[in-house]
Amino acid sequence: MLWSELMAELDATVLVPGADFDVNAIAAADLLSDILATEKEDFVILTGQTSPPAIRTALAVGALWVVVVRGKTIPQEMIDLAKSFGIPLAVTGKKMFEACVSAGARMWNSPSSRS
């Protein structure tokens, strides 16, 4: 599943655009420590966190994208940080569980999926 396909699936608003690559995996968690403990690579972070540490977490673990759930208002500071580090950032109105279900359904049925 491509990043753009995921965005469509989640009906997400892209705040910081980025190149359209294949999404290998998704790490869904509100606890940044959970994300820091993941062993996935080239993945999307799906989270309820709306603070700069979430972007730094993506940088530390090498996640390629960040999507915030529940249509939360993203502070400008987080958007600026994502921009300056080249981390695509989007927000979806879906709740965490709903976002996981629709992303998962699409991912596992997608012909381009490698997961």
Partner: peptide
Amino acid sequence: PKGPAGRGDEAGAGE
């Protein structure tokens, strides 16, 4: 570089 190109790690961004 591993994975897709164009990552921000080397961008020298302003933190």
